[in-house]
Design a protein around this nucleic acid. Sequence first.
DNA 1: GCCCAGGAGTGCA
DNA 2: TGCACTCATGGG
Length: 274
Amino acid sequence: MIKIDYDAKYFNPLHTLDCGQIFRFEPFKEGFLVFSGDRACYVYSDGKKTFVQCEDGDYFYNFFDLARDYAGIVEKAKSYNLPLLSKSAESCSGLRLLNQQKEEMIYSFIISQNNNIPRIKGIISRICGGLGEKREFMGVEYSAFPTTRALAAAGAEFFKNAGCGYRDKFLDETAKRIQGEGIEYLEKLNTCELKRALMGYKGVGAKVADCIALFGFAKRDSFPVDTWIEKIYREDFGGTLTDRNKICDYFLGLFGENSGYMQQYLFYGKRLNL
DNA sequence: GCCCAGGAGTGCA
DNA sequence: TGCACTCATGGG
């Protein structure tokens, strides 16, 4: 077991985990247990330092994006002089974008469409419990995220019973396709090509593709537009467009290569009612 | 009963 | 291409 420590001002476990980019974590002792693929870590903060305890330091160092300087990103956010963005970046300066498992992001965000976060977490938890390998970390038993092999073999009925609703067939089809051809070909694509390729999977549209690209492929020049972003666009930017693709282009034009960070500040800040 | 949730597939003009 | 309609499910 190793322990990583980091300046708490730019690494807040609650903000990082609660902002909607990850669905597998739970309160534990002074912080949270966080699950990614088949791994787990314990993250907590004393207000000055944030600590990560885990077996695989390299993996979670990258997972929490600890090589990146978030002081500069927070300053960048404030430099736009947009009230919601400035407030959010100020009070959520410890929100970090995670580098998560690609396949886990594909399946998780297919489940996310037209759904709410508590329910998404419940569905994913049941899928992991049913198909994921059982593991143990710090005395707690947990289930790994299922392999594509297991997901492809499960059948649509399993997903239906897990509460996926009409998304059951999307998961079944996508798992079987990935089982057959893998996802390695996605790795060398640029953001635009990747988004287009991801949209070729059943159940993956523009918004879900942007989330997968942002959280799974570290494509920070992505800006997922969901119902909350639409609301922000209307209420905080005075926007009149209704086409989500055009709203996406508007924000990409505004924020460029930092779009993903700004999107998370805006999304989380709005949900916190800042 | 309604509306909403980190939307997307389908059919039809 | 654009646009209405539909798709489970649970909470407020």
